[in-house]
Write a protein that binds this DNA or RNA. Structure first.
Lengths: 97, 97
DNA sequence: TTAAAGTACTTTGTATTTCAAAGTAAATAG
DNA sequence: CTATTTACTTTGAAATACAAAGTACTTTAA
């Protein structure tokens, strides 16, 4: 049952989602445009990765209008922050065996 | 062109391949059974991930018989070791921003 | 001695995931 | 106005992940 990769969270086991989380844990929030630019990904690709994290309740999404333009903000949840911490620890443990 | 996830190597961006590499960089070699047990994966799954790393020339494969039983040993290549080092540094950089 | 179970993989096919292109809708620029 | 840009969402094909089944033996044990 227990293996050396057991505590690596599948939800974070992709560079784009790892990037999203590492941005959100230090920034409190980021909007679609900011994530897109920092990560250098296409729109559709980013949307599907944020959706996956949202589904797990690791981030939440707040839609509003800034002036008359739509704006989507992403926040990490408590659950997400905790899970990410465990994930990072698991990676570090794996790499420093 | 350059983003915060740019130096993360797609070939290592999966927990199983990350696990395989982290085993191989410290052990010089591991056989199929050892990898399977350490990682807790199914046979077919392990085979496809080792094949992916082999294709990139990050590991090489040596088939022989131990007694009368087939045995497959995996070694990390120089190229693999270098690429993995860069990958690990990229992850660490990302996580400690 | 032969049947059953185990070992060490490989092959196959489906399910899931990833991704970019195209689509939508409103804003701003010319 | 019309054209382009911004800010996303939807769609569907392609790639990937995965387990189950298959192959080719070897070992156990009745």
């Amino acid at each position: 049952m227990s293996s050396i990769i057991n505590n690596i969270n599948k939800a974070f086991d992709h560079r784009i989602r790892l990037g999203i989380m590492s941005i959100l844990v230090v920034n409190e929030y980021a909007d679609f445009k900011m994530l897109k630019e920092l990560l250098g990904v296409t729109d559709g690709n980013l949307a599907s990765h944020t959706k996956a994290l949202e589904k797990e309740e690791y981030i939440n999404v707040e839609k509003s209008f800034i002036g008359r333009k739509p704006n989507t903000k992403y926040y990490v949840t408590k659950k997400g922050r905790d899970a990410f911490k465990k994930h990072v620890e698991a990676i570090e443990k794996l790499l420093n065996r």
